[in-house]
């Protein structure tokens, strides 16, 4: 049963991503991206990653879309066809090579990734190395060693708490980078009348 839901969800996810890439109307593309994120969150819930699904629903479908739409409101809604004047034609390479090159790169990358799956442990395999080495200890000890029933939180805030400090710093960095790029008033703000 789960497999069927899984396959259906994945199918919709692929459809969404194709639509998000090829739509000319950026607003629709963004909304479809939000749908993609949301379906992804559902898929992760199916795969039992509840914390991640929660975060993705809040971030991917929420904040990212809001920011993207806000950006659109300050820029343009539609993708445009650029008319290249004659004198600039040599600068803007518009040959077949520019269309084919990305496809070649993508196909090669995908082929390498697929090659990697040959020796991969099977999906849901309980004997895969990742389920044998480090993780069992977390599952076994998290509640009495780290004091949290939710193992993900235990790892996040305790075992690998330093990573989370890094994560918080990344957020802070994003905030200050956006402020430095977009804010217009003087920084030590005075009252503007």
């Amino acid at each position: 049963m789960i497999e069927i839901i899984d396959v259906f969800l994945l199918f919709f996810i692929v459809v969404c991503s194709v639509a998000a890439i090829f739509l000319k109307d950026l607003l629709s593309a963004i909304i479809i991206l939000a749908a993609f994120s949301f379906l992804m969150a559902v898929e992760w819930t199916v795969l039992n990653a509840v914390d991640v699904a929660f975060t993705e629903a809040a971030v991917g479908a929420g904040i990212t879309s809001v920011l993207l739409i806000a950006t659109l409101s300050r820029t343009k809604r539609y993708e445009e066809q650029v008319n290249v004047p004659k004198e600039f034609a040599p600068v803007v390479h518009k040959g077949i090579s520019t269309k084919i090159m990305p496809i070649v790169v993508v196909v090669i990358t995908g082929a390498v990734l697929l090659y990697g799956t040959i020796d991969m442990p099977a999906f849901e395999d309980p004997n895969a190395p990742i389920n044998k080495h480090v993780a069992p200890t977390y599952i076994h000890d998290a509640d009495h060693e780290a004091g949290s029933i939710n193992i993900v939180t235990a790892i996040l805030a305790n075992y690998r708490g330093y990573d989370t400090l890094g994560e918080t710093t990344v957020i802070f960095a994003a905030g200050i980078c956006v402020v430095v790029l977009l804010r217009r008033e003087k920084w030590p703000e005075k009252k503007i009348t």
Partner: peptide, 19 residues
Amino acid sequence: YDNPLPHCLMLTAIVVGVS
């Protein structure tokens, strides 16, 4: 139980992505 470590890693990675 499912393996919790990748979940935890991805929480961090999602944050990095949105930043």
